[in-house]
Design a protein around this nucleic acid. Sequence first.
DNA 1: CGTAGGATACTAATCTGATTAGTATTATAA
DNA 2: TTATAATACTAATCAGATTAGTATCCTACG
Lengths: 200, 200
Amino acid sequence: MPLKPRLHREMVIYEAARLADAEGVDALTLNRLAARLGIRPPSLYNHVDGMPGLLRELALLNIRMLEARLKDAAVGRSGADAIRALAQAYREYIKEHPGVYLAGLRAQRLHPPIDAELRQGEERVVGVVLAVLAPFGLSGEDALHAVRGLRSLVHGFATLEIAGGFGLPLDCDESFRRLVNLLIAGLLKDEKGSVNHVDD
Amino acid sequence: MPLKPRLHREMVIYEAARLADAEGVDALTLNRLAARLGIRPPSLYNHVDGMPGLLRELALLNIRMLEARLKDAAVGRSGADAIRALAQAYREYIKEHPGVYLAGLRAQRLHPPIDAELRQGEERVVGVVLAVLAPFGLSGEDALHAVRGLRSLVHGFATLEIAGGFGLPLDCDESFRRLVNLLIAGLLKDEKGSVNHVDD
DNA sequence: CGTAGGATACTAATCTGATTAGTATTATAA
DNA sequence: TTATAATACTAATCAGATTAGTATCCTACG
């Protein structure tokens, strides 16, 4: 009789994501997750491979959701407009899913680049960004450097934001808009000046 | 009447910083820290206010070290050169002290903006960056937005780097250099074009 | 039909880590 | 010389992760 309706792996991960997003990654605990699901902590091991496994699942979920968001944002746009939409969607995603996003980062420290599935996911996301940057005349390594830049910028801004790092009473939306515009302006300038030298 | 100087408190924080930098924030545990110091875990409470207090101390140490680094880098330089030096010093600092840096971030989630000492430290760092950006004709809110941008960019790049987020075999130094140059190019373009509109 | 497996749940127990309470020791200021 | 503050300790509690061993139920196959 103590047996209840079956739980699915999907439900476990979904509930973990809800918990992490609602109360922060640090609140994501196997004990609390089990309580939410109405089971005892050890039972979770029937669905995920402990905390490391759960974090990995969240990392995969993160990448899937992020990829979908970025594609939605980029579709039908091009040039500077596409970059703005992409950056904004990226930032909004992180703010909507801070727990899942940070869990994804944490997982990368545990599951080094050896994890093929994670790596492939990352590559798909990079692919979306590459497509958006293509019209700027970037290709090969130049394009990859630019992807790193855009990613760093959005990641940095959004993680500082959710960490409460921006203390001053200054509109964050405006800060972000300006930052993205600065990047775009730099890309446009580069486009003409050919090489990536600002002065030197 | 004067209380005797406690050099032990400094030692605790210093050792915590070494541990965090060497083995990661997650390895920073009161048990392990106590073992390194040759005492039992509860004895640590004579020196710091538990784990939250320790994280706060590390956050303060982080700000002091970072401020010193940034000042060193900026002194005697100006314009684009100063920005490059500042960004590079910032990034190098984070890579040298990943544990302390991340502990500082974690502390901000625990000690909300109410903490006056932390806030003042942040403001000093902002001041250094503001001084470097001043020659670009930015002032008031414009300058603050730019500080946020520069900080986001460096923070984002460096934290992705230490998290192993850049999987591709592409030179990180070069990626960073280009990103900083893009920002500078954007700032220079703005300087002439007056307002911060790229199109719209 | 009826049982063998697998999936899933449980309890019990271990380990690590944070924290509090209570107590002993010792250096030093009065 | 003694009172006190700083510091250390042990013991105990609590939360969390994890493993081992066991019970229960669903389902598929004979």
